[in-house]
Design a protein around this nucleic acid. Structure first.
Length: 234
DNA sequence: GCGACAG
DNA sequence: ATCTTGTCGC
């Protein structure tokens, strides 16, 4: 199965593929040192098939931006809860291929194994590129958890079917928690530690925060090359 | 059948 | 996700 063929898959076929990917997930501690970390995100205009993908590279743990790559592509696969990767990974790979240097670890905007089939976008991307990855989501997809305390870095485990699938992390006081889960080739504990070391005063950790700013910037610049936005509260 | 539901 | 302005709370 090639990412370029994702848009031809039916939801049932996409789910079948996730079951296949699930068998290859490796959630063991990352042993090699990391000095380059990347953040990825997607942006798009409502009702448009154009998607803007971007990846920002940082030195780690200093978190100085040392590179980036973007790609503008199209997708027909709609957003379906649980199948986000089939809509966004193809675009992200186009940006990934443009990187002259590959990061040692990637942070994706979405779930890792904190997914019904343990195949969130971070896990999916990590498997496809064979790169250690972490999922950092702004909201919960699945899993039960107790609300973490209201102090920075207070955390609470997320459970699903008897297993720990993620960590609800209070990245900033008085802000909703973010949901961290390993994507591939990294442990739950390491994932949380890395994300904590990437928080710089904002709820969203720098890798995905900067990637988000980047893709929105190129989307506005592109103006979607003639796509209009009509908004009457929908 | 009902409620939930990453971006 | 995206569109929007003001507004409430730390």
């Amino acid at each position: 199965m090639q990412p370029s063929d994702y848009e031809d898959l039916t939801p049932a076929q996409a789910i079948a593929y996730q079951h296949e990917l699930r068998r290859q997930i490796n959630i063991t501690p990352l042993l090699s040192p990391i000095s380059i970390i990347g953040g990825a995100d997607i942006s798009f205009n409502k009702y448009s098939e154009v998607v803007y993908a971007g990846i920002v590279l940082f030195s780690y743990p200093e978190l100085k931006i040392i590179g980036q790559a973007t790609a503008i592509s199209k997708t027909k696969f709609p957003y379906i809860s649980g199948l986000l990767a089939f809509r966004e990974v193809p675009a992200l790979l186009n940006a990934w291929d443009k990187l002259t240097i590959k990061p040692h670890l990637m942070v994706l905007d979405g779930q890792g194994i904190a997914h019904e089939r343990r195949t969130g976008i971070a896990t999916h991307f990590g498997l496809i590129t064979d790169t250690p990855s972490i999922g950092s989501a702004k909201s919960r997809l699945t899993g039960r958890y107790d609300e973490p305390g209201n102090q920075p870095f207070n955390q609470s485990p997320m459970y699903d079917k008897g297993e720990v699938i993620g960590t609800a992390l209070r990245s900033k006081k008085n802000c909703k928690p973010i949901y961290i889960s390993p994507g591939h080739r990294i442990s739950m504990e390491q994932s949380v530690e890395v994300i904590k070391s990437c928080v710089r005063g904002y709820r969203i950790p720098e890798p995905t925060r900067q990637a988000h700013l980047l893709v929105n910037k190129i989307r506005i610049e592109d103006g979607d090359n003639n796509n209009r936005q009509i908004n009457l509260f929908d």
